[in-house]
Amino acid sequence: MGPKNILIIILLILPFIGFAQLAPPSPSPGPPPPPPGLPIDGFSGALLALGVIYGVRKKYKDSSS
Score class of each variant (00 low, 15 high):
L47H: 02
Y60V: 11
P39E: 12
A20H: 02
R57G: 10
K4M: 10
I53M: 11
P3D: 15
G45W: 06
L50C: 04
I17W: 13
S44P: 00
A49Y: 04
I10G: 09
I8G: 14
V56I: 15
P33S: 15
I13Q: 09
L12P: 00
P3H: 13
P32G: 10
L14A: 15
S64Q: 05
S63L: 13
G2D: 15
G51H: 06
Y60H: 07
G30L: 07
K4G: 10
G37K: 08
A23L: 09
K4D: 15
P29Y: 05
I8N: 12
L48C: 09
L38D: 02
I6V: 13
L12K: 01
S28M: 08
L50T: 02
I10T: 13
A46R: 04
F43L: 04
I17C: 07
D41H: 12
P3C: 14
A46G: 07
G18K: 02
S28F: 03
I6K: 02
M1E: 10
S63H: 01
P32R: 02
D41L: 02
P35M: 07
I40M: 11
F19N: 00
V52A: 14
I40L: 15
S63Y: 00
A23H: 01
M1S: 14
A49Q: 05
S65P: 06
K61A: 07
M1R: 12
A49D: 05
V52G: 14
P34I: 05
F16P: 01
G30Q: 01
L48Q: 04
R57Q: 05
V56P: 00
K58C: 03
N5V: 10
P29R: 05
P29T: 05
L14C: 07
K61G: 05
I17T: 03
R57E: 03
I17N: 00
L11W: 12
S44D: 01
I17V: 13
L11C: 10
G2W: 05
Q21T: 09
S44G: 13
G30P: 15
I17S: 09
G30D: 02
P25Y: 04
N5D: 15
D62H: 01
P3G: 15
